[in-house]
Design a binder for these strands. Structure first.
Lengths: 190, 190, 190, 190
DNA sequence: TATGAATGAGTGTTCATTCAT
DNA sequence: CATGAATGAACACTCATTCAT
C-alpha cells in the first residue's frame, strides 16, 4: 500500500514536478483514496521527500553493486557508467529532480527533510575517492567530496542538455568525455 | 520602474523560488502596485523568465570581459574564476536558479521562454573550448559543448554544496580543484 | 446538494444578474463552501446556464400540462394564462432573464450553452400554432414560429413594464389584451 | 469630443455589452485619453446610459418623422416599418440592448438613469394608439400603453430570433405578420 | 481502516477610476 | 484641459487537508 502510493507519487512527481503534481492524481494512480495517502504520509512535502530518498537509494544501491570490490580507478569508471545508465533509464524522474543527485539545489532540502540525507549520500560516495587517495592512486591534495561533486555535477549537467536535445552527444560519449577529462586530472601519474 | 520591479522580483524569486513567490510581495518590495507590475510583464511566468535572462546576461558580460583577448588556457581559468566569484556574490539568486547557468533543469525552459537563450548561451561560451582546440592547445577529440557543460556543471554542483555548508571548502579551493582536475584532462600535453 | 446550490444560484442570479452575482454569495446562501459549488459546476457560466434551463423547463412543464389535450384555440389561451401566471410567481427570476423565454437576447446563448435549447423550446411551443393551422382554425398563411414569438414577446414586454410599475395594468388585463388582440388576428374567421 | 466618445462607446458597448466593454478600448477608438472620458462622463454606467438614450432618441426621431401627419392606422404601419428597418440597420446595437426599446429588462433601469426615460418613451409612442382610439378607429376598450408594448415586444422578439438565425423569416415577413395579426385585433371593425 | 465529499484559505489577474504632470 | 501611468479592490477558481461515515 505504502509502496503502491510511493510508486504512483514517483510517476506523477516525475512528470509534473512538485507544484504541478496533484495529490488526487497520485491517489487515482495508486488506486487508493486521498485519505489513505494521508494515513501514510503527513503531507505532500513528506511524500515528495520520500520519493526522492527512494530514488537516491536505488541509485546508491546500483552504484554500490557496481563498485563493490573494485579498485578506485575501476570504481570511478563503474560509478560514471552506472550513473549515466541510471539517468537514461530514469529519464522522467531525472529531468525533474535527479539533478538533486549531486546537486540538490532547487529543492529546499530543509523543507523536504533531505539535508541529512544529502550529506550522507555525498560522504558515502566520496569514499571512493578517499580510498583512491589512500592507495596513492589519486593525487593526495584533492578534496574527496569536491571531486565527487565535480564528477556528479559534470555528469548531471552534460546529461541534462543531452536529454533535452540541446547538445548532440551519445550516452557513451558523455561517459568517455567525463572519464577522459577527469581521470587524467586526478590520477597520480599518467 | 521596470528595473525596480525586476530587482524586487529577483530578490523574491531568489528567496522563494517561482511557486512560493507572490506577486503582491514583489509589488510591495518594488514599492509599486500590483497593477503596475502587469503593465510591464504579461504574467508571473514572463517576469520570472526576464529575471533569469537578466542574471545570465550579467554573468555572460562579466565572463566576456574576463576572457577578452585571453588565450584559451587563460580564458578557461578566467572563466572559472569569474563564475565562482559571481556565484559567491549572487548567492541568493544562485541558490535558486543560477544552477540554471549551465544546467537549466528544474526550470521548464519552454514555459519561461528560455530554450533559445540557453542554447545560445552554451554555444557562445563553448567557443572558448573550440578556439583552444583549433589552436591545438586542447585535445582535438573533445566535444566543446560537452567540455563547457562539464566545467559549468562541476562548478555549480560543488559550489552549491559549499554555499549550503554541506562541504567545507573555500571558494579558492573550488576554483583550484576544478582547474587542476579539468585542465590536465583537456590540455594537449601534460 | 446540487439542487440546493441551484436554488441559491437562481436566487442570486435573479437578483443580481450574471456579472454582479458572486460565487461566494451563492455558496453562502446554499450553505456550502465555494469549493463544493465547483464540484458540481465547472464554472460560473455553466451554473448560470443550468439555472436558466431549469426555469425554462419548469415553465415548459407547466405550459405542457396546461395545454395538454386542448384544442388550439383553448391551448393558446391556456398558454397565455400559464405564462402570465408563471411570470407573476417568478417575478425575481423573470426580471432578469425570464425575458430569455421567448427573447433570449442579452444572454450570450453560445456562452451558456443555450442555443440548442432555445431553438427546441421555440419549435416545441410553436407546435400549438401549427396544429391550429392544420385544423384550419388558424389562418394558413401564418408562420407558426413567428406567431409564437409574437405572443411570447408581447407578453414578456407588457409584463415587464407592469412588474416594474411603469404601466398600470392587472395581470388579467394583460392576458385579455394579448388574447383579444392576437386571437382575432390569427383565427380563420371572425 | 463628447460626441466622438459617445460614438466610440456605442460601437464598443454594442459589440461587447456593458460588462465586457473596456473603457480603455472606447478611449482608443475615440482617439482620446481615458481621463478625457471621465471629464465628460462620471462613470462607465453613466456613459452606458447616455449611449442607450442616444439610440432611443434616434429611433424616436425616425419614428416621429415616419408617423408625422399620418392617421393612426397608417401610423401604426409606419411605426412597425420604421422599427423593423431600424433594427436591421442597427443590428449590432440592437442585439445587445435595442431590446431595451420596448423591453428594458436586462438593464437595470435605475442604475443607468433610464427609468424616467423609459416611462416617457412608452407614453409618447402610445399616443399613436390613443389617438386611434379617440378617432374611433381602434377599439375603445384597449389599454394604449399595453397595445404599444404588445407591438414593440412582439417585434423585438421575433426580430431577435430572426437576426440570430433561429427562425427563417424575411424582415418584410416580420412586418406583415405583426401587422396582420395585430391590426385585425385592434381595428374597430374589420 | 478506508473513503472521498466538503472545506476555505490563498493568489494571479483585471480594469474602473484617479491625479500628478 | 488632456494625458495615461499608477492604483488596488475585487473575484473566480484550485487543491491540500480534514473528518464523518
Amino acid at each position: 500500500m505504502k509502496e503502491k502510493i510511493l510508486e504512483a507519487a514517483e510517476k506523477v512527481f516525475s512528470e509534473k514536478g512538485f507544484y504541478e503534481a496533484k495529490i488526487s492524481k497520485i491517489a487515482e494512480l495508486a488506486d487508493v483514496s486521498v485519505g489513505t495517502i494521508y494515513r501514510f504520509y503527513k503531507s505532500k512535502e513528506e511524500l515528495y521527500g520520500e520519493v526522492i530518498k527512494k530514488k537516491l537509494l536505488e541509485m546508491e544501491k546500483e552504484v554500490e553493486r557496481a563498485i563493490e570490490g573494485k579498485e578506485p580507478l575501476e570504481a570511478i569508471k563503474a560509478y560514471v557508467n552506472t550513473v549515466v545508465n541510471f539517468f537514461s533509464k530514469e529519464q522522467d524522474f531525472f529531468e525533474i529532480f535527479m539533478m538533486e543527485l549531486g546537486s540538490s539545489f532547487v529543492i529546499d532540502a530543509e523543507r523536504f527533510n533531505l539535508s541529512e540525507w544529502y550529506r550522507n549520500y555525498v560522504k558515502k560516495l566520496s569514499k571512493i575517492i578517499e580510498k583512491g587517495i589512500e592507495k596513492e592512486i589519486f593525487k593526495s591534495n584533492l578534496n574527496p567530496e569536491g571531486v565527487f561533486l565535480l564528477i556528479s555535477g559534470a555528469l548531471a549537467n552534460i546529461d541534462y542538455f543531452r536529454l533535452k536535445g540541446f547538445i548532440d552527444m551519445e550516452p557513451n560519449e558523455v561517459k568517455n568525455l567525463v572519464l577522459e577529462v577527469v581521470l587524467r586530472g586526478i590520477l597520480n601519474r599518467n
